[in-house]
Design a binder for these strands. Structure first.
Lengths: 340, 340
DNA sequence: ATGCTCCTTGAGATCGTTTACAAGATCTTT
DNA sequence: AAAGATCTTGTAAACGATCTCAAGGAGCAT
């Protein structure tokens, strides 16, 4: 098992050239005569030589990998984003390192740790709260935010959450709903705030209110959706429709109501956000705002590798379009329009 | 941004010792006098020095990371396993590299690529089909299989799939079911085969048959579960219960039936495999065989890092226990027992 | 033949660590 | 006090690539 592998020295010896020439033949073939290139390639074939990435990285003063810091890897929301990341990052010649920040008591310290130990050439951050001036000051490598964002110190790739929420609310209004509730994400999260803001402004634009009783505080999780359902059931004056800031919560909400014997969407309409895979298979199939997660990952990776290559920092934000996916979880009230 | 960071040379100069002593003070503090250790530590504090992992890895002839090869990162089934992997791997001082094999036309080539370029000190493989003699011959680093397995050339961490399937079937039988169908995984997969085998043997033990019409071929995906539902609906002689080899398929199966107007579990009972997070929130909540995914990740990481440290290859397989999670998707027929 | 440019190649420094080896210094033991 | 053992430290050689610099050779114009 501890067989020794060929090094560039071996190739040089076999091909009867210097190591410099071997290196050139492999990385910049144009700089080398046809005949020597062939000798080198033959030696490579013969020995099965592969460059040692660690040595190359040391010399090039880089690490050859980019790091994705995920708040909670167990959350399936990230899997598809990571898939997009992985694809682009691999194509650009980097490895994808993944770390979970939530296992740590203090995520900020964790991030610092990764920054100090030069472990990656770039960072993809999914937790907007960590993106502060302190981080900007300490960071030696480009950073990009995906989905969430913070102070406008870093570039980001995200959807327009205000617009997404407004799309959802307008859809409910079009379908005749006038009393509309909202299940929020966790306190202090940008997504929570912008989706709530979008909800509020779209309601106001239609001359509607959002009573505090109809704001159900959640944390994006299934269980918090179920908890919102219990609060909904406790109310005397219930909204006829609820916009959930995540599909997971919508799913928990629907499940808890159905288990309690309620019928959907007859008794309450639900609209989600994200369009996770299972949404279309629920009963009723969940109407939702689709967020192209794979594309978010791809764009984040592309922008990051570009920044690394150009050795420049930008802080522009790129917006990916969301769209309404109309399924069955929204009921049309008497006065509303049918789904086109 | 391209500020230069302190090296071990700087520390040596400031602390007025050799680089060798600095290295020792940091990695084997016991080998160094209290007073010099303090001088070194002070210099480290002062400069904010951090070792360069690339240089260390080059010298130590390792890479400092382990690679998880996932068939399809977008599949949420893996997210929790990766979470367990990430935690243990980080604690052992390795980075976790993740690559998606399915993006590639030829996964085997992909794996070879990673093996040849010494990019990791160990490999976690989730695709059993890749675990053949060819791989064993070529591999320079320890490999462990998670969930799936192949020729007994590699160690693995997995659940007892035959037993899991038998648990499911016996549960259906206890509840009075006599005509039981099965939705399988993709052809050629060990999990598919073992779960089918467990199904068959448990049925046979009860004197029951598994007619070919009642074997619905799927591929673990939601959509293939929905396709199985359409086939079930087409049948004149339908099983009263179906054991699905994955929760995802069960979910697709249930969804498709409900959309077509069927009532569950009144018309057909369903039992799944995996216990993914959403299962408990479905209506009816899915009865399933729980597979502790995070623990599988943790154990795989532990065994792998152990093999790396010991520089020995083993090929024992570790089994993680599965258990029946009794929810609402299985109906008790007249002759059956109630759920305890 | 000389001077010039252009192309190909090699010598050797460098990236930032770890570690084998040896040399002093200190401590035991006789 | 001499001999040996033990501890601490420094010197310098790895680890395996890349890349600067300079030298040699070919081709061309004068």
């Amino acid at each position: 098992m501890r067989q020794k592998t060929a090094t560039i020295q071996d190739i040089a010896r076999i091909a009867k050239v210097s190591t410099a020439t071997v290196s050139r033949a492999l990385s910049t073939p144009g700089q080398v005569t046809e005949s020597t290139r062939e000798r080198v390639m033959q030696a490579v074939q013969q020995t099965g030589y592969q460059v040692n990435p660690t040595a190359r990285n040391l010399r090039r003063r880089r690490t050859g990998s980019i790091l994705a810091l995920v708040p909670n890897l167990a959350n399936p929301f990230f899997s598809q984003i990571l898939s997009g990341l992985a694809a682009v990052v691999a194509a650009e010649g980097y490895g994808l390192l993944i770390a979970d920040t939530q296992t740590d008591p203090d995520p900020a310290t964790r991030v610092s740790f990764y920054l100090d130990n030069r472990v990656a050439d770039g960072l993809v951050l999914f937790d907007g709260r960590l993106a502060d001036k302190r981080l900007a000051r300490r960071s030696r490598v480009p950073i990009i935010l995906a989905c969430e964002w913070g102070d406008p110190l870093f570039p980001s790739v995200r959807v327009n959450n205000v617009e997404g929420a407004a799309l959802a609310i307008r859809h409910l209004i079009e379908r005749g709903h006038r009393s509309i509730g909202h299940i929020t994400g966790p306190r202090g999260n940008v997504l929570t705030d912008t989706r709530l803001a979008g909800t509020r402004s779209a309601l106001r634009a239609a001359g509607l209110e959002l009573p505090t009783d109809w704001v159900f505080h959640g944390d994006f999780s299934l269980d918090s959706g179920a908890a919102a359902a219990r609060r909904w059931m406790d109310q005397a004056d219930r909204p006829t429709a609820v916009f959930s800031a995540s599909d997971e919560m919508a799913c928990g909400f629907i499940g808890a109501l159905q288990h309690a014997g309620h019928t959907l969407p007859a008794e309450v309409s639900v609209i989600g956000f994200d369009d996770i895979e299972v949404s279309g298979h629920l009963t009723p199939a969940l109407t939702t705002i689709s967020q192209p997660r794979r594309r978010i990952g791809e764009r984040a990776a592309a922008k990051l590798t570009q920044m690394i290559a150009a050795e420049t920092l930008t802080c522009d934000s790129e917006e990916i379009a969301v769209e309404l996916v109309c399924r069955e979880s929204v009921r049309t009230l008497a006065s509303g329009l049918r789904c086109r």
